[in-house]
Design a protein around this nucleic acid. Structure first.
Length: 457
RNA sequence: GUGAUUGUAGCUCAGCUGGUUAGAGCGCUGGUUUGUGGCACCAGAGGUCGCCGGUUCGAACCCGGUCUUUCACCCCA
């Protein structure tokens, strides 16, 4: 065996103890919030049948799926004709499983498979990694975690209001004060397209319009022309694209007039207003909430509300997003189930909290006391103390090797252990132990009971 | 998928127009200190210069390929 340099696949990461402590802080905060709002946890397998995944994320999405090679003689099924036909013919013969691309589609699959056991509305959350084979870059990885919460089986806009409330709760818990929840509605986008006389070109309109804050009005208009929008259409869109920032109220007034002749558009607007009023009933103000009719988001399956959360002042993309999808389970044979959901991007939240220095100081979540010993006899006695500490609920460990006391202290110091309990010949004879506070440097000689109460304090 | 970019010790990085034995800081190991960590001083270990190939008398340095890093585009958490 030749030596090989250890490495991990592109775009994937290890998480060390410090990172894990911080990630768990994020997970715990989000999980507590989901539970507080009545969501139940679900997990689905890392792999799904490829047929479950393909065609759900558009052509681009299919390209980004990680496919898993069939086990056994995976070439057996590939014959000459298939091989000559090319990838599209060969792929299904080679691979029938793939890694999940998001949590929403597996959830939809789950709902359909278990429709008879589920009582609707069904509220679940799911926190698991997903995989995408795109090129990694800032804040984008090939393996990353999503924390999804979805409700299916109701079209009540209370769900939308609650999603906003949950986002606010989570962000408040993190101490984030400068962020905004962008809210839009797919029907408003449809209405805008309709008013512009480009009813069939919603998708193109969305992709272009969504980039407004990123590339500016002129380049959006350029792109619209490129995609075949007429002069008149772009002219009609002008007041929407105007850079001047409107307040939520101003947007509502503007849209009421702008969408007056569009039935869908007006419906969308009504939905937004209803979400806002439910939010008020929940006792939530509209701080952090930005009406953003230009927000489109990529995924094409949204049919109602659309959310996206951006944190200001850090170069990280959106940290959370979601929306309502009216017919997600339709492709799996269960029509007319409306759902709404959203997702926190843990990895991006991590970057945000890190950049803003918002992680709490690592509290004493590690070992509280380490037992150090001067020899084999002392170590034996230390084992008894070790067990006693643990019975008392004190996180304790023993230095496992017979080593110089200096080395043992060094270990405790590196690991930020608060106390070291020392056992030497003297302590052994007296039935005591030396307890040293590693921060203050103070040391006292105590009985086991005294040490326990000191450590519990 | 397109266009750039990065790779030298465990980590962060020097390394001149190609020249003989590739360096620093931090960390690590040992010692000053056989009952005490952090601080200081001393000593030491540690590198196929990402990998493969090419040019050259000679390559960490130049060229090609490949992997990886980072960034923009597309798209997206």
């Amino acid at each position: 065996m030749s030596k090989q340099k250890p490495s991990i696949p592109k775009g994937m990461r290890d998480f060390g103890p410090v990172e894990m402590a911080r990630r768990n802080y994020i997970f715990t905060t989000i999980r507590d919030t989901f539970r507080l709002f009545g969501y139940e946890q679900l997990e689905t397998p890392a792999m799904e049948n490829l047929s479950t995944l393909t065609g759900k994320y558009g052509e681009e999405g299919d390209q980004l799926l990680f496919k898993v090679l069939n086990s056994g003689e995976f070439l057996k099924k590939v014959n000459d004709t298939a091989f000559k036909t090319g990838e599209t013919a060969v792929l299904p013969l080679l691979s029938e499983k793939g890694l999940r691309y998001d949590l929403t589609v597996p959830f939809a699959r789950y709902v359909v498979m278990h429709q008879n056991e589920i009582s609707f509305p069904f509220k679940r959350f799911q926190m698991q990694p997903v995989w995408r084979a795109d090129r990694p870059q800032k804040g984008r990885y090939r393996e990353f975690y999503q924390c999804d919460a979805d409700v299916v089986g109701t079209d009540s806009l209370i769900c939308e209001a609650e999603i906003i409330a949950m986002i606010k709760r989570v962000f408040a818990a993190f101490g984030l004060a400068d962020y905004s929840i962008h809210l839009n509605n797919r029907k408003i986008l449809s209405g805008i397209a309709e008013v512009a006389g480009a009813a069939g070109m919603e998708a193109e309109l969305c992709v272009a319009i969504d980039k407004l804050d990123k590339i500016g009005r002129e380049r959006v208009e350029e792109e619209l022309y490129q995609k075949g929008f007429s002069q008149e259409a772009v002219a009609v869109l002008a007041p929407v694209l105007e850079a001047s920032e409107r307040s939520n109220g101003e947007w509502l007034d503007f849209l009421k007039a702008f969408l007056a002749n569009s039935v869908v558009g007006s419906t969308g607007l009504k939905e937004v207003e209803e979400v806002l009023s439910f939010l008020t009933l929940l006792g939530e103000d509209t701080r952090f909430l930005t009406l953003d009719p230009v927000l489109a988001r990529g995924l094409s399956y949204y049919t109602g509300a659309i959310f996206e959360v951006k944190v200001s002042g850090v170069g990280v993309g959106s940290v959370s997003g979601g929306g309502r999808y009216d017919n997600l389970t339709g492709v799996f044979g269960l029509p007319d189930i409306s759902g709404v959901g959203f997702s926190f991007g843990v990895d991006r939240l991590y970057d945000v909290l890190d950049a803003l220095n918002l992680f709490p100081e690592a509290q004493n979540e590690g070992t509280r006391v380490m037992l150090a010993h001067f020899g084999a006899e002392e170590r034996k006695q230390a084992m008894a103390y070790l067990a006693a500490f643990r019975r008392a609920g004190i996180a304790a460990e023993i230095y496992p090797d017979l080593a110089k006391i200096k080395k043992q202290f060094n270990y405790a110091d590196k690991k930020n252990i608060a106390f070291v309990a020392i056992l030497g010949a003297e302590e052994l004879a007296n039935g005591t132990l030396g307890l040293k506070n590693m921060v203050s440097g103070e040391q006292e000689t105590l009985s086991l009971e005294e040490a326990i109460s000191r450590l519990q304090g």
